[in-house]
């Protein structure tokens, strides 16, 4: 079974409606390590050695957070700055992350159609995540499309949270059992339709 590490970043979890549910579902899932970064490092003093050890111990790394200014919340960027050191993650001897999987589980305020060339955000979510994708590439990791919930601010009112969380749990299971088609996942715009399709085609 693949070992999944969820790096969770939400600076104000008591106001969260979706991420808090994803966090809870991840914690309840056996075999998943969940790190609430803001809880563990409330003053941003990330323990580099501990975080590098965690990375070594897992096969799948998940950045779980809301999308802030087309990127991650600050602590997750701080985490990248500090933990992905030369000689560990990249560079001549930096092979610790080689062939591990990197995945973003995001929530975005804007609707899906905003993340198009003609939409008000002008770029697709894959285009906006290029810095993270290239970071993964630089570290020799496999990057796949994000698992994302659009229009997240109204998801609660429109009762979309529960099904999104259920999809997330199915995705965790697929990651653990290594049943996700990684080639297709690397090309896809988002992972969400792949989970739904799996579910529709394979009731088990």
């Amino acid at each position: 079974m693949k070992r999944v590490l969820v790096l969770f970043a939400h600076p104000s979890i008591d106001r969260s409606e979706v991420n808090v549910e994803l966090l809870r579902a991840s914690r309840d899932h056996e075999g998943v390590t969940v790190v609430d970064l803001y809880a563990e490092y409330p003053d941003y003093r990330i323990d580099i050695d501990r975080e590098q050890e965690r990375l070594r111990d897992h096969d799948v790394v998940v950045f779980m957070s809301p999308l802030y200014w087309y990127s991650t919340p600050a602590i997750l960027k701080e985490w990248q700055d500090l933990v992905l050191e030369y000689g560990f993650a990249y560079g001549h001897e930096g092979t610790a992350l080689r062939d591990k999987l990197l995945l973003c589980a995001l929530t975005a305020g804007g609707p899906e159609k905003a993340y198009r060339t003609e939409g008000f955000n002008h770029y697709t979510i894959r285009e906006l995540l290029r810095p993270i994708e290239q970071t993964a590439t630089m570290c020799g990791m496999r990057f796949v499309a994000p698992f994302i919930l659009f229009s997240a601010r109204t998801a609660h009112e429109e009762s979309r949270v529960r099904s999104h969380v259920a999809d997330w749990v199915r995705l965790i299971e697929a990651l653990q059992r290594d049943t996700l088609d990684l080639e297709a996942a690397a090309r896809a715009p988002t992972l969400n339709p792949m989970i739904d399709a799996r579910d529709a085609g394979d009731p088990a």
Partner: peptide, 22 residues
């Protein structure tokens, strides 16, 4: 805290990772 990579480290990458850029 943040540690800079050694000077001249970019020479390692010319051949190494260009092929993986998708």
């Amino acid at each position: 805290g943040w540690t800079p990579p050694p000077k001249g480290y970019t020479s390692e990458f010319r051949t190494d990772s260009a092929g993986r850029e998708s």
